[in-house]
Amino acid sequence: MVSLLDIIGPVMVGPSSSHTAGACRLGLLARGLVGGTPDRAKLELHGSFARTGEGHGTDRALVAGLMGFRPDDDRIRTALEIAEREGLDYRFEKTTLDEEAHPNTVRITLERGERHAVMTGSSLGAGRVLVTAIDGFPVEVSGNYHTIVLVAEDIPGSIAKIATLLADDGLNIANMRLTRQRRGGDAFMVIELDDYPDEGVRDHIRALPWVRWAFRLDKVSA
């Protein structure tokens, strides 16, 4: 569903809603997967991101997002210098992902302490983004909601348990999707929430013995 505020917005540092603001939002979502500013980042640019990214500040905007800067943050302009100063070790590569990939796509590989994550996402235009894969699981995360992503053992009742846990915290689920690579294998859950889940909620989910990991991706749209 398209919102008025998707169209009249985002408020952003120029020059391109897809190559600058969208790139920043993809960086912000990736940051959520390691729970903060990564120590190391590899950013593989595909299609138009690779061809015209530099002139649009795509590199700066992606790194700014990884550091938690939002699309309207002036610091995007000097994000690469800030990253170097603060010890974020980033590396850009140009690549060709599969033929079907959207022209503005990036694959981001992150390390923060013991935590690793790989995220693929595309910038769809007008600042809208879509994360299409996390750690090899196909997903659809728009960043239009506060989102919890988690990997759990595929056991009966897992969805009900998590839904109850969220309801107990007063959180309303907007969308919930489950993907798994094979029966009995790990299940990847994407839960989009109307309300902001605080750290306590994530801790409750992480405390479940069959949950391997859980992260919160903050809403990136208006």
Partner: peptide
């Protein structure tokens, strides 16, 4: 011109047409 100079604008609908 502000957009091209990496100033702050509102994408409406996009930055290129802002």
């Amino acid at each position: 011109e502000v957009n091209a100079a990496m100033g702050v604008i509102v994408a409406a609908p996009t930055a290129g047409g802002a």
